[in-house]
């Protein structure tokens, strides 16, 4: 029962955040006149043929486990972010040690 309540809390928070974002995107689109595909009556539509992705996204639906370039990019970016944090934490500890020395 407690787990169900916790799941509910997580989902409610996610829905609140998602709702705010949805409202934000809707508001920015209506003010900038961006984005949607609309029919003659102004109802939103998907583009004909479903080809909504940018050009470089061709072949996404094909799959087949090609060269995982973005996986490597992701690992490199995460390593850099983690490395920067670790370096900052290490420098912070070092300076704290120096100031605590007599």
């Amino acid at each position: 029962m407690a787990a169900l309540f916790r799941i509910l809390v997580i989902l409610v928070v996610a829905v609140l955040i998602g709702g705010l974002m949805y409202a934000g995107v809707g508001a920015s689109d209506s003010s900038a006149g961006l984005g949607g595909f609309e029919d003659e009556e102004g109802r939103p539509q998907r583009p004909e043929g479903g080809d909504f992705r940018p050009e470089h996204d061709e072949g996404r639906e094909g799959g087949g486990f090609g060269f995982p370039g973005s996986v490597i990019k992701a690992l490199v970016l995460m390593s850099i972010a983690g490395g920067v944090y670790s370096a900052m934490a290490w420098a912070g500890k070092k300076s704290a040690r120096k100031t605590s020395m007599p």
């Binding site: 920015s28 595909f37 939103p44 998907r46 940018p54 970016l77 972010a81 944090y85």
Partner: peptide, 25 residues
Amino acid sequence: PMNFAWRRLHDMSANLSLIIMGLHI
């Protein structure tokens, strides 16, 4: 309904998640 703003947000938030995930790890 499709909207280009969501597509851009998806890419941006995914790229941002790499940095935050790196820090989290």
